[in-house]
């Protein structure tokens, strides 16, 4: 085999693996990325029911209800619109009323957001970045001191 043929085999197989990887990436990007939405986006029905999205905002003060069997209901607000969220499981340590939250799940046909995962802020100063921008857009944001950012997730499989 000549040097040229060997190099061709090498380059050919490299391109093959790369093409395979690109196909994998494109295939999974279509199915597994999740868009972030504010309560206003959801209320304007930017996300169709059943599509997996992230919802971020503040936990509305006075909205948290704990039901039987680890059922939690609360409302997420951006100061403009409120979205009811239903979650089954254990919420993170610093999930509190009046604090930032990001929930991942989908909209039920009735308009309730069924959360599968809840991420809460983990420090008095910290807000998820998306939530800050949402609140800034709605004019409900005040700059606070240097944040220490730790988000903690809770999963409800």
């Amino acid at each position: 085999m000549t040097r040229k043929q060997r190099r061709l085999i090498l380059i050919g197989s490299s391109l093959g693996v790369l093409a395979f990887a690109v196909a994998l990436i494109l295939g999974s990007l279509r199915d597994s990325i999740v868009f972030f939405n504010s309560p206003t986006d959801i209320a304007d029905s930017k996300a169709p029911p059943g599509k997996r999205v992230r919802l971020g905002g503040m936990v509305k003060v006075g909205s948290v209800e704990r039901g039987d069997n680890l059922q939690v209901r609360f409302q997420v607000t951006d100061g403009n619109r409120d979205i009811p969220v239903s979650y089954h499981g254990i919420v993170p340590d610093l999930f509190r009323e009046g604090q930032g939250v990001v929930a991942e799940g989908h909209i039920e046909p009735g308009g309730t957001f069924l959360a599968e995962t809840v991420l809460a802020k983990h420090d008095e100063n910290y807000m998820p970045r998306e939530v800050v921008e949402t609140l800034k857009k709605q004019g409900h944001w005040q700059e606070t001191a240097a944040p220490n950012t730790i988000a903690v997730k809770a999963s409800a499989k």
Partner: peptide, 13 residues
């Protein structure tokens, strides 16, 4: 656009 790429993407690729 704000998106998150989570575990499913990485598991699949």
């Amino acid at each position: 656009d704000k998106i998150s790429v989570g575990a499913p993407f990485f598991n699949l690729t």
